[in-house]
Amino acid sequence: MGIVRTSDVVLIVTVFAASLVEMVEALTLVVAAGTTRGWRSALEGVAAALVVLSTLVLAIGVPLIHYVPINTLRVVVGAMLLLLGMGWLRKAWLRSSDLKAKHDEDQVFRDTVSRLSSTAKPAAGRDGVAFAIAFKGVFLEGTEVVLIVISLGASSHRLGLATLAALGAVVVVAVAGLVLVRQLSVVPENTLKAIVGVFLCSFGLFWVGEGSGMGWPGHDASLLVLIGIFAASTLVAGRALRRDSVAP
């Protein structure tokens, strides 16, 4: 039995939550394409996108682990995660105070269905529109997941674990999609995005510190402190911004 490290647990949670959010967005488009244009072509689009994304993880992630010095990799990856995390966290702060519209999957679904219904379906064979919408949805949303999987997996030499966490989220979303079908808004997407933003910022700062040689006191355990700092800041910022927005 191996020892479970704090960074492994945080890695699994981060990749799983990020993948969950992105795949819910992709699922909206897949369900819209499937119900309006036919499931066969939509599912073929999903399969093709998953093959391309898996190839990307193998083609980029494995050489990164083997050929790039670990400290350089950690600083570069940390910087990328930090950049990504600040973007997610900023959106979460803005959404919590209604300065930015909350993401509404039901609205996206309705818009996509109405757009897809207006174009003619082929009499037989593959429906190119359904294939393209499903492929694009999974590929575009999945690219960010691939980036997170490669970044977190490569910097901690846990590419397999990160990939499994992402695949776990894909399975959960697929099952949830079968059960919920059109009620995707029940997924607390905006909250999940805030959590992922907190984790990405924490991981990013952690790896920049470790890779630069500065190091964090307590090593992996300091990740929990960073998560606590960013989570507390998100709560405080949300409250302060909400209070300001309702003040006369």
Partner: peptide, 23 residues
């Protein structure tokens, strides 16, 4: 992000300052 990386390298011998300044 660039500033964070530069500061992290600059403070790699001053860990106590670094862990406060970076966040």
């Amino acid at each position: 992000t660039i500033v964070v990386v530069v500061v992290a390298y600059a403070l790699h011998r001053e860990r106590t300052v670094g862990v406060i300044v970076l966040p």
